[in-house]
Amino acid sequence: TFTSIVTTNPDFGGFEFYVEAGQQFDDSAYEEAYGVSVPSAVVEEMNAKAAQLKDGEWLNVSHE
Rank of each mutant, 00 (worst) to 15 (best):
Q52M: 14
E57M: 01
G22T: 03
L53V: 02
E31W: 11
A48D: 09
A51H: 08
M46F: 10
H63T: 05
F17I: 04
E16V: 06
E31G: 09
L59C: 02
A21Q: 09
E45T: 06
A51S: 12
N47K: 07
Q52V: 11
I5W: 08
G56Q: 03
D11V: 13
W58A: 03
D11G: 07
L53N: 02
H63Y: 13
A41T: 11
V36T: 05
K54C: 06
F15H: 15
Y30A: 02
V6F: 00
F15W: 11
E16S: 09
L53M: 06
F25I: 03
P10E: 01
V38L: 06
E16I: 07
Q24H: 12
T7I: 10
D26Y: 05
K49D: 03
V36P: 02
T8H: 07
A50R: 01
S4Q: 06
N9L: 08
A41N: 13
E57Q: 09
Q23E: 11
G22V: 01
S28M: 13
G13R: 09
N60Y: 14
E64L: 11
G35A: 06
V38I: 08
A50S: 07
A21I: 04
F12R: 07
D26P: 04
Y34P: 01
T1R: 15
T1W: 15
V61P: 02
A21F: 13
I5G: 09
S62H: 14
D26G: 04
T8K: 10
Y34H: 09
S37L: 10
E32W: 08
G14L: 08
P10R: 04
A33Q: 15
D27V: 15
H63E: 03
Y30I: 02
E45A: 12
P39M: 00
A29T: 06
Y30S: 02
I5H: 13
Y30T: 02
S28C: 12
Y18W: 08
S40T: 13
F2K: 07
D26L: 07
G14K: 09
A50W: 00
E45S: 09
V38Q: 00
Y30R: 02
N60K: 15
P10S: 02
T3W: 10
A48T: 10
A41S: 13
Y18I: 05
N60I: 15
S4C: 12
G14I: 08
A41E: 14
D55P: 14
A29C: 09
T3L: 12
I5K: 09
Q23H: 14
K54H: 09
Q52S: 09
A51L: 08
K49I: 14
A50I: 08
V19M: 06
T1A: 15
L53D: 04
A41Y: 14
V19A: 00
S37R: 13
G35Q: 06
Q52T: 10
F2V: 10
A29Y: 07
D55I: 11
P10N: 03
G56F: 06
F2D: 07
P39I: 03
F17Y: 09
E44R: 11
L59Q: 01
E44G: 08
G13W: 08
E44W: 00
Y34F: 14
S40N: 11
A33W: 13
G22D: 02
Q24F: 14
D55N: 12
F17D: 02
Y34N: 06
G14Q: 09
E31L: 13
M46S: 02
V38F: 04
D55M: 10
F2L: 09
H63K: 02
S62Y: 13
H63C: 04
T8R: 10
T8M: 11
V6A: 04
Q24T: 13
A51Q: 10
D26Q: 06
G14P: 08
E64T: 15
L53I: 04
T8P: 05
A51N: 07
Y30H: 01
E16K: 12
E57W: 04
F2Q: 08
T8D: 09
D55A: 10
A21R: 08
Y30P: 01
F2C: 09
E20M: 10
V19I: 13
E45W: 06
L59T: 00
S37C: 14
A41F: 13
E16W: 12
E64V: 15
E32N: 11
F2S: 07
M46P: 02
V36F: 06
V43I: 14
E44M: 10
K54L: 10
G35Y: 02
T1F: 14
G22S: 04
T8I: 10
L59M: 06
S40G: 10
T3H: 14
T1I: 15
F15E: 13
D26H: 05
G13V: 07
F12Y: 07
E64M: 11
D11E: 10
S37N: 11
V61I: 13
L53R: 01
P10Y: 01
N9M: 12
G35V: 03
N60G: 15
F17K: 01
L59G: 01
S4A: 12
L59I: 03
A29F: 07
E20S: 11
D11Y: 09
P39N: 04
I5D: 10
N60V: 15
F12C: 09
V42L: 05
E31S: 12
Q23C: 11
S40E: 12
V61M: 01
Y34R: 08
N9Q: 12
Y18S: 03
G13T: 14
P10A: 04
V61H: 02
V61T: 03
K49W: 00
K49F: 01
N60L: 15
D11W: 10
N47H: 05
D27L: 13
Y18E: 02
E64H: 14
V42D: 04
E64Q: 14
F25A: 04
T3C: 15
S40Q: 14
S40Y: 09
S62K: 15
E64D: 12
E57H: 05
A51P: 04
E31N: 09
Q52H: 10
K54Q: 11
E57S: 03
D27C: 14
Y34C: 08
F12A: 06
G14H: 08
Y18R: 00
F12M: 09
S28Y: 12
V36H: 05
I5R: 06
T3S: 09
T3N: 11
E44K: 12
D26W: 06
A33D: 05
V19S: 01
D26S: 08
G22H: 07
T8A: 08
N9G: 07
A41C: 12
T7M: 06
E64R: 14
F17C: 07
G56P: 03
Y30L: 01
E64S: 14
T1Y: 15
V42S: 03
D26A: 05
V38N: 00
S40K: 15
Q24L: 14
W58N: 02
G35N: 08
V19R: 00
L59A: 00
F12V: 07
S62P: 03
V19H: 01
F2G: 07
F15N: 15
W58C: 04
F25N: 01
S37T: 14
G56I: 02
I5M: 13
F25Q: 01
T1P: 11
F17M: 03
